[in-house]
Design a protein around this nucleic acid. Structure first.
Lengths: 359, 359
DNA sequence: CACGAAATGAGGTACGCACCTCAAAATTGC
DNA sequence: GCAATTTTGAGGTGCGTACCTCATTTCGTG
């Protein structure tokens, strides 16, 4: 049987009230007594029963998840996952609220963030580009005691409590090796697309990609990054133009979103399945494109893991508890058609485990 | 505020005792009343407060994890992970016991399993090859009400409650695409090694691998599987002999363990880094070999996830609760040097994120 | 309608902890 | 050594649920 507060009281030779005072850092206990209690705790190996504690407190953790209102399928999926996780989290006394902010308006974001403490939020998870206004807002939140965790894209200069997401540079490197090896080391050219070339995650991915290409695959020429500004139209235009003029392009690395526009452009040019296409994030669309052979590989982070990890980390930070680093490591997943996890609407050939369409 | 049992009683117009009888499926309630209570539950959206329930039950779940006593690093890692998870699990009232059995003695395994219920175990997770004796033992356990989950390697003919692990055929397919693409589609030969060619997981991996190679990479010749019987000496002998006589071998797919012997043999022949080597499971050794460029890719399943998932599933099965399928899906991870998650004893070059050794 | 059986109600205790009050004891300052 | 102050003890209540007992009501049946 695990020791309880009563055992500690007995062991330390004090009353239950004193143990309680020490455990919950209430005032009015001599240093000497505090030590005696802590010694007893150490001796017995006592661990507070968190569920009982929370039950007694009848406490609910009000957490805010703040995402941009991009139409990107990845962000949508993430939002859905959080919503779902929020329902399940009710069991753990977590009350999740999802907030979206206009992706191009850092001031609106900051204003929204600063309202959170007044609304009783105890912690914030935030996916947003780092701007000066944001830095100030995060600092303000933290000084009010709210833990802030960065989501997907890190905010290294804000003293956020934690970052939950993949190492984007390593992700770029991974895309690099795959591209290089899939192209047999060259020769050929590779196109790189990014929604915004200024965003921190794009920069890091590009950096990792270039690193590997330069070092390990000198026979492959990586063309200048093309910016799509998150617009499908721009993307199609840019890609079509580029491919028409560069017959040696054998691979495309899409660092941001806009996969729909990309596959569509490729289809129109009759290039579907003829190029090595690597992109990020597993969404309904990239799933389909993978299965159809239009996309070769997807570098992904698991939204379910992201969401669950976020809740665990926020909770731990609020309670000031240590966390299991291993569990909170978000892996850089490589998804090919062959290891695509079964999805919700999956009609695969039960014999081969693959769709009818030939590779 | 979430509704409680008292709210249900009021809403359904019955007493608390009756609600309790319905909730815990105790006898002595008319169908009609049961329906009334369930309707009230549905109307209020009541969800049982699990932590309070477990507190009241003051129940500890005694779970058994049964692993072979192989010296394989993967099994060792798995055992360590379970041991570690067991400590953490104390918080969730789970009392974990690790059992090992002589891997070549199915009868000893069966005997061990049959002892578990008497020792108060409430659930069993089992990693073992399927044999007739085992089938009987599993059936016996289940008829006594103990949920049994298969670990890593499925036991499809035993009516186990759940399988926790990757789809080995899909894993084999994944190895196949990687091999095929990394070899540029051929020409060349590929060597396949397996510890035991009769084990179900080996058969499935091989099947998946062949499927992809035959269909997508006809230019690559897959040689007959070599059996190593889990012995490092046999492996070295077989590999050395084979490589000496087959100069066209450009890739090796190691389906089982024995990576130490393999990399050693390659080193001795001066072939380190010159072949495409794909193997399974991330262990201290495969990590090192990946970093050193001796192994090209590792197909892995995350032991931490495996362990946590096992505990969650067992608990859910014991309590007869539904599970979050998405969370329990064990992914087929592809690990390259570039996306190798940071390990415990990692001394990487902080600039490149890679070790000093050139590729 | 009466009888036994089945269904239900009322109420209590416990789980491990948080949080509160009030009195008693120990310590401090003077 | 006394009063003022700080520290400690004893005890209670509640969180939401499980599980138990014993009375009371309702039901089906002859």
């Amino acid at each position: 049987m695990r020791p309880t507060v009563n055992d500690i009281a007995r062991e330390a030779g004090v009353s239950l009230a004193t143990v309680d005072r020490v455990l919950n850092a209430r005032p009015g206990v001599r240093e000497k007594t505090i030590k005696a209690v802590n010694d007893a705790i150490a001796r017995l190996g006592y661990v507070r029963d968190l569920s009982a504690a929370n039950l007694a407190r009848s406490r609910t953790y009000r957490m805010a998840v703040v995402l941009p209102d991009t139409e990107s399928q990845f962000v949508q999926t993430l939002a859905d996952t959080f919503r779902e996780a929020g329902h399940l989290a009710a069991t753990t006394r977590i009350d999740l609220t999802l907030h979206r902010f206009p992706s191009e308006d850092p001031h609106a974001l900051a204003a929204m963030l600063l309202e959170l403490p007044a609304r009783g939020h105890a912690g914030v998870a935030l996916m947003a580009p780092e701007t000066p206004v944001l830095r100030d807002a995060v600092r303000a939140l933290r000084s009010r005691g709210l833990p802030v965790v960065a989501l997907v894209s890190d905010l290294p200069n804000t003293a956020r409590d934690h970052f939950i997401g993949t190492d984007n540079r390593a992700a770029g490197r991974t895309a690099g090796v795959l591209m290089g090896r899939f192209l047999g080391g060259g020769p050929g050219q590779v196109l790189v697309l990014g929604s915004s070339l200024l965003a921190r995650d794009m920069i890091e991915r590009r950096r990792g990609f270039d690193e590997v290409m330069l070092r390990d695959f000198p026979g492959i020429e990586v063309l200048q990054s093309l910016e799509t500004h998150g617009s499908g139209r721009t993307l199609r235009q840019v890609v079509t133009e580029m491919l028409a003029n560069a017959p040696d392009v054998r691979g495309i690395y899409a660092m941001g979103d806009g996969h729909r526009a990309l596959t569509q452009a490729l289809q129109e040019m009759g290039l579907s399945g003829k190029l090595t296409v690597i992109c990020h994030e597993l969404t309904p669309h990239t799933r389909k494109a993978l299965l159809a052979g239009e996309i070769t590989a997807v570098i992904a982070q698991n939204p379910g893991h992201l969401a669950r990890s976020t809740l665990r980390v926020l909770r731990a930070k609020v309670d000031n508890l240590p966390l299991d680093e291993g569990q909170e490591q978000i892996r850089i997943e490589i998804v090919l058609r062959e290891n695509l996890p079964p999805g919700p609407d999956d009609s695969r050939d039960s014999a081969t485990g693959l769709p009818a369409a030939a590779p």
